[in-house]
Design a binder for these strands. Sequence first.
DNA 1: TTGGACAGACCATGCGTTCTGTTTTACGAT
DNA 2: ATCGTAAAACAGAACGCATGGTCTGTCCAA
Lengths: 220, 220
Amino acid sequence: MGAGTKDQPNVTPRRVAQTRSRILEAVITSLDEVGYSECSINRVQQLAGVSRGALTHHFPSKEDIMVQTLLQLLAPVRGPASPTEEAQLLQPTPEMGTLPDQLQHLWHRVINTREGRALMEILVAARTDPALSARITPALWAYNDDFNRNIAHLYQASAAHAKEFSLLWSICRSFMRGLHSQAAYERDPEIITKMVDLFGRIMAPHLSPRAPAEGPPAAP
Amino acid sequence: MGAGTKDQPNVTPRRVAQTRSRILEAVITSLDEVGYSECSINRVQQLAGVSRGALTHHFPSKEDIMVQTLLQLLAPVRGPASPTEEAQLLQPTPEMGTLPDQLQHLWHRVINTREGRALMEILVAARTDPALSARITPALWAYNDDFNRNIAHLYQASAAHAKEFSLLWSICRSFMRGLHSQAAYERDPEIITKMVDLFGRIMAPHLSPRAPAEGPPAAP
DNA sequence: TTGGACAGACCATGCGTTCTGTTTTACGAT
DNA sequence: ATCGTAAAACAGAACGCATGGTCTGTCCAA
């Protein structure tokens, strides 16, 4: 497993990052599978396979755990810090497809995933937790700004709603978020897909994809 | 069931109903203000001003509390059992107004209320609680059916989406649900109102109000 | 006298936090 | 190169406390 034969200056940072990552992954899995109220420190520790000391060393309080988890969940969509993952999420497939296709992609690959559901658990929990809310609000604002800026490279509003572009995408995201609590109780899972499709067709006239000029988002 | 002629034979049933109501109200308030994970039995008991014995007598387990609270929250929108409250919720004001107005009404008076937020807390919590989920799913299905049936008296889909009427309203409800987790973190609260308005204007061409013929919903 | 409505004490369990150790790494002085 | 030492990384026990559930007891109407 030894990485560098000559120098391994990052063997410890790597190990540290791995421990942190294992913990955060366990938090995400727990949030998704048992929800916020059952996402206890004991459960996370056991699932991550780390000791209590390691956990409290990296995250002194439960609030820290949730804040850092949220930051990790928000990171892929944020700025071009990690172009690889961003490409998977917002930079759509080579053929961009219509808006309904794009929304289906967003729902199945981004929103309705372990990470997406975990994010929702934190958002809902933070609504009634002032301390947590205060700590995550700046990150959420920055996330919104980044999302709007990135998505503006790919879509544009119709002439009728020129100045309401970000509002249109906020509506899309709200719809997707609400789908979370709907999907769990729908008789026929196919209905969710149909809802996304119909919603996409309704929104399509107001939100058209940009001509695929060469990409300014990738370069810098 | 009429009141007693002389004495008060229903003084006890009234007292019982009052105790139950005080408990459920306390649950709703707690869910709204501190969320599901902090909605403990002790808190509810203290807020309702009842003893522990009374609480466990009416609701043997915490799961029972949540199930009964959900049923209470769903009751007003369901069948014509209580036409008074239904009138406030779905039977819009004498002048029905446009769809954006109707959605604003729904958001401000139904969804974004103590009861609406409490309902969301239960829905989110039940997603990861199989026992709770199993007990509330039938009620949620019936609620959906009742809602669709009642709203069909007031609106109709455009010709293009004739058979997708209930799907259209499901989209509306999903959007509203998602607004919950958006409203808590929006910089400018006015944006929520703008989102509802724009969404209403986008949906309006596909969901037109029916001509106000005399009402079949009132008479059974 | 019975059973429903309520009152309040009691209990085992799991919670989040804090604390004291032990191992590993980093790094400047030698 | 080697050593010494401080800090980081990790391990695990212990603590105080709130939780949900249970259990016995009291009141009152039927």
